[in-house]
């Protein structure tokens, strides 16, 4: 320890400290996920099936995302509903095939 160390203490967190923090966060999640199956693809399919019962949506218009922060994880589900015009067209097409139009 020398005199210069006293001045070093007041510096903002070092790059190495940032590296450590990032590692701690990512590894905490990876360790907790290690023994649990990756459920996101299945979740996405089941959500889509439920939504499709009520609205006809495109497979590509459902996005399931997991956002990770130090304290919590956030599951974000984005479903883009078709515009009214597209819905009407879909209903017409369905009616033409003799099927009931999808309920809105």
């Amino acid at each position: 320890m020398n005199l210069l160390d006293i001045f070093k203490r007041s510096k903002p967190p070092t790059i190495a400290a940032q590296a450590k923090e990032r590692l701690q966060i990512v590894l905490a999640h990876e360790r907790s996920d290690r023994n649990s199956p990756d459920f996101l693809p299945a979740l996405q399919q089941e959500l889509l099936a439920v939504i499709k019962k009520y609205v006809s949506v495109d497979e590509d218009k459902v996005a399931v995302k997991l956002e990770r922060e130090s304290g919590c994880s956030m599951l974000e589900v984005n479903v883009e509903l078709p515009s009214p015009a597209a819905r009407a067209a879909a209903a017409a097409a369905a009616a033409a095939k003799g099927k009931p139009a999808p309920a809105n």
């Binding site: 510096k11 070092t14 790059i15 190495a16 400290a17 590296a19 450590k20 590692l23 701690q24 590894l27």
Partner: peptide, 14 residues
């Protein structure tokens, strides 16, 4: 020492 690299203690802790 310059704070550019993880300390061995950091790696050990993780």
């Amino acid at each position: 020492e310059k704070g550019e690299m993880l300390k061995v203690d950091d790696v050990l802790e993780i």
